[in-house]
């Protein structure tokens, strides 16, 4: 049952798939980040993966490519699940890595993508409202990156010690 999804996706997507694997029962597709919207549209419409369960990112500091945006999909009809990963390199000029937004396909991706932008600093093209969501606007940096120290606080307000 599970392998069937992977098989169907492979036939449908062809070259955009970089690799596939199944580990502990989780089927994974690694795809080209530049084609993510097209891949997702095909998976949604043709393979039946119509439910975006989760969208997150992992920072593999020191590895090339450094980031991986991870999508978890589910089919509401058959209950099959699929993980799609899009590796992303950090641009040489130090700007934020970017890929296309999947908000046109799933409205629920809106907040997930804002969260990834907030915590990992990954830009999403065509996102309707890419603002910080968990941290405040004054915050500098992207805290879930591995090179952000855990206890570097950026206080907004502190008490007057002479109060």
């Amino acid at each position: 049952m599970s392998l069937a999804v992977l098989q169907r996706a492979k036939e449908l997507l062809g070259d955009t798939i970089k690799s596939t694997h199944s580990y502990r029962g989780d089927d994974t597709l690694v795809v080209d980040a530049a084609a993510i919207v097209e891949v997702m549209r095909l998976l949604k419409d043709e393979v039946g993966m119509d439910f975006l369960v989760d969208l997150t990112c992992v920072d593999y500091l020191g590895r090339e490519p450094r980031f991986e945006v991870v999508y978890h999909l589910r089919s509401m009809k058959t209950g099959e699940r699929l993980r799609v990963k899009a590796p992303l390199d950090e641009p040489e000029d130090g700007s934020n890595p970017a890929l296309d937004s999947v908000v046109p396909l799933w409205a629920g991706a809106n907040w997930f993508e804002r969260e990834v932008w907030d915590l990992y600093g990954i830009r999403f093209h065509n996102h309707p409202d890419l603002r910080r969501i968990l941290m405040y606007e004054e915050f500098v940096g992207h805290p879930l990156r591995k090179d952000y120290p855990k206890e570097r606080r950026q206080p907004l307000v502190r008490r007057d010690p002479n109060e």
């Binding site: 941290m135 206890e151 950026q154 502190r158």
Partner: peptide, 15 residues
């Protein structure tokens, strides 16, 4: 919770 987002005690901003 000792991290970038939590305040180490509310007494940092009010008595």
């Amino acid at each position: 919770y000792q991290n970038y987002s939590t305040m180490p005690g509310a007494d940092q901003c009010i008595p």
